[in-house]
Computed example of a mutant assay.
Amino acid sequence: MSDGTRDPRVLLTGFPGFLGSALIERLLARGDGPIACLVQPQYRELAERQAAAIAGPDGDGIRLYEGDITDPDLGLGDGDLADLHAVDELYHLAAIYDLAVDPEPAEAVNVRGTEHVLDAAADLDVDRFQYVSTCYVSGRYDGVFTEDHLQEGQSFNNHYERTKYEAEVLVQERMEAGLPATIYRPAIVVGDSETGETGKYDGPYYLLRLILSQPAAFSVTTGLPGAADAELNVVPRDFVIDAIAHLSGREDTVSEVYQLCDPAPLSVPDFVDAIADAAGHRVLSVPGTKSITKRLMRAAAVRGLPAEPATIDYLDHPTRYACPNTRRALAGTGIDCPPFESYVDELVAFVRENPDIGDEAMA
């Protein structure tokens, strides 16, 4: 039966983004369509192509509504708002995922945008609010950070972390006031563990691409003081989507926070070694200070090399992530985070086969 006779009961922000596109496939597969997607005008054409690829050119499972979370009422006109009267579940994924983002756009999208989406959830009186946060609301918390942690007086590596923290504080305040919400905190999301597919080359991909840009016989990276004690917590997209799709469909997950992280991540040196082995490169780690390394990264970026100074802060990141709530909830489901070594070959192969993918965030 066509979805054209039904009003959307699910509203999703963050389409046609990398996670949002994958999640919507899962929601449609379990019969949640038609799904209303809030789409910024500049991404309308991309969203139409993505919707056709997922639901078919004549499918009505995905309905696009032009708007913007930075605007009150999500930038929707009265007619569009009337179309959403039946919405009882809202997935909020839209955010600026950029470690080097300036404060103004980060606050507009991540903080005020989340506040506007929360207001829309209240106006629609939704039964479920599904919010995608990040493990890095931890900032530079010195110790083990679990689902029970949030406001710990932590400092932050960048405006992305700070504004995602402030946004989650808003969500948790609404939860305490009665909003039936569930919060998901992915760690650093990379490509699919089976295919390596990813939407952009950011985060750990700067390290991978920098290694690939050098001679295989002798490639150089920087080793920061304290890197041996730091962990790089990476998770593949399919694990994140599997977990959200499963947990969001259960009633017992309301009012819970789930960290979607690797319970046994690699140390930074072991992570570099894993990438080097998969790439077939001999890598030498040269000791250096953070300030000097960031200057070198800025110079490399000016020369067109794949380098982002903001990523250096994660090579001596003091926080370790634990996910006891997630592990309890997913016990017996078969949904587990695979070890990085089991899929790093796929990530490297995808980068080699798709050199033209960029690192720009959707905003």
Rank of each mutant, 00 (worst) to 15 (best):
G4K: 14
R6K: 14
P8L: 03
R9F: 05
G14K: 06
F15I: 06
F15K: 05
G17D: 02
L19A: 15
L28V: 14
A29T: 02
A29Q: 04
P34L: 01
A36Q: 04
V39D: 02
Q40G: 09
A55G: 06
D58R: 03
G61P: 11
G67D: 01
D68S: 03
D73E: 08
D78C: 03
D80H: 09
D83W: 07
H85A: 15
A86V: 02
V87W: 03
D88S: 07
L90F: 11
Y91R: 00
L93S: 04
Y97M: 14
Y97V: 15
D98M: 06
L99A: 07
D102K: 15
P103E: 14
A108P: 07
R112S: 10
V117W: 02
L118A: 14
L118E: 13
D119Y: 13
D123K: 13
D123P: 08
L124Y: 10
V126N: 12
D127A: 14
F129Y: 14
Y131R: 12
G143S: 05
G143D: 05
L150S: 07
E152S: 12
S155N: 13
N157L: 03
N157S: 07
N157W: 01
H159Y: 11
R162Q: 13
R162S: 08
E166L: 09
A167K: 00
A167D: 00
V169M: 00
V169W: 00
L170K: 09
E173N: 11
L179P: 09
P180V: 04
G191Q: 04
D192L: 05
E194H: 06
G196M: 02
E197W: 05
Y201N: 03
L210Q: 14
I211P: 11
I211A: 11
L212T: 10
T221A: 01
A228D: 15
L232P: 04
R237M: 09
V240W: 07
D242V: 07
A245Y: 05
L247F: 05
S248Q: 03
E251V: 07
E251C: 04
D252W: 11
V254G: 14
Y258E: 04
I275A: 11
I275C: 14
D277C: 09
H281E: 09
R282M: 09
R298G: 12
A301C: 06
P306L: 11
A307C: 15
P324W: 03
P324R: 00
N325D: 14
T326W: 02
I335K: 06
C337N: 13
P338W: 01
P338F: 03
V348C: 07
A349E: 15
F350P: 12
F350N: 08
V351A: 15
E353N: 09
D356R: 02
D359F: 08
